[in-house]
Design a protein around this nucleic acid. Structure first.
Lengths: 146, 146
DNA sequence: TATTGTTATACTCTATAACTATA
DNA sequence: TATAGTTATAGAGTATAACAATA
C-alpha cells in the first residue's frame, strides 16, 4: 500500500479506536457520550455560541446540530437563551448541571487520552504530532471556509 | 485547554474534515462512499477475508458489517463465496467490477490525501507523523485484542 | 433575498438479542 | 457449548430538503 494511503488509514483507525476508548469510559463512569462532551466543551469555550457555530466546529449538518442540542437540553446540560441582537438564533449556554458534568468528566477524558499519547510517545514526537495535526487542521479549515 | 485535550480534538477534527474531503470527491467522481472504499480495500488486501475480519479491522458491529457487505454485493462490487473449511462463514472477494471501481478511485483517493499531508508537511514531519500514528494504533489494537 | 434554525423523511449505523448453522 | 453470521427491533445519527422567521 502506498505510504500516503497507509498514513490516512492509520489516522482513521487511531481516531476511531481512541474515540471508542474515551467514549466507553465517559459513558460508563459519567453517563455522557463523547459526542456530547465535545459539544458541551465547544459551548463552554465560546460565549454566545449558536447552533451554526457547532455546525462549523464539529462538521455536522444544521439539522443534526439542532437535534443534538435538543438532547443536551433534555438532559438538562444546556439551554437556549434569546439572542437580543438577532431573533433568528439563540445563544447556547451550559446549565449548572452541564458545568458539573463537564468538570466531573474532564479528568477521565484527559487521563484516557494521555494514556495513548503522552505516555506512549517521547516528548519530541508528541510535540511534532501536535504541530503537524494543527497545521493540517488549519489548512483544511481554511479551504472549507472558502 | 490542556495540551492533551487539544491534541485529541485536533486529531478528531482532522480526521473528520479529511474524511469528508475524500468522501466528497470519491462520491462525486466515482459514485462510491469512502466507507465502502475502505471495506473494499480491506477485502482486496486480505485473501480469505470474512465478515468478522471487517468487524475487527474497521471497528464496527457484526450486524453493521453484515449489512454493509449486503450493500457492497447489491452494488455488484463484492461477493460471498463458500468457505470450504468452515461452513459457518463465507469468504469475501471483489468482483471484477469491484476491482475496477477500486482501481479507478485509487488515484483520486491518494491525490486528495496527499494534498493535505505530503504537500503540506516537510518530509521529516510527515515521516514522524506516520511513525507516531502507527505506534498509537499498534498500542490501541494490542489493548483491544486482549 | 440571504441567513438562522426547525422539522420531516429516508437511510445508515448502533446495541441488543433471537436465531441458524456449524465447529 | 462456543463460534460465525444473519436478521429483527428500537434508538440515535446523518443527509437532504422543505419550511418559518428574521435580517
Amino acid at each position: 500500500m502506498a505510504r500516503t494511503a497507509r498514513l490516512f488509514v492509520d489516522l482513521v483507525r487511531v481516531e476511531t479506536r481512541l474515540w471508542n476508548a474515551v467514549d466507553a469510559r465517559l459513558q460508563a463512569e459519567h453517563g455522557l457520550r463523547l459526542g456530547q462532551y465535545d459539544l458541551l466543551t465547544v459551548i463552554a469555550g465560546r460565549p454566545g455560541c449558536r447552533v451554526l457555530d457547532l455546525v462549523h466546529e464539529v462538521a455536522i449538518t444544521v439539522g443534526a446540530a439542532s437535534k443534538a442540542v435538543d438532547r443536551l437540553e433534555a438532559a438538562g446540560w444546556c439551554r437556549r437563551v434569546a439572542n437580543p441582537a438577532d431573533g433568528r438564533s439563540s445563544f447556547l449556554e451550559l446549565t449548572p448541571a452541564g458545568e458539573r458534568i463537564l468538570s466531573g468528566a474532564r479528568p477521565v477524558y484527559e487521563e484516557e487520552i494521555e494514556r495513548w499519547t503522552s505516555r506512549l510517545l517521547p516528548p519530541g514526537a508528541l510535540e511534532e504530532l501536535a504541530t503537524s495535526l494543527r497545521t493540517i487542521r488549519a489548512a483544511l479549515e481554511a479551504e472549507q471556509r472558502s
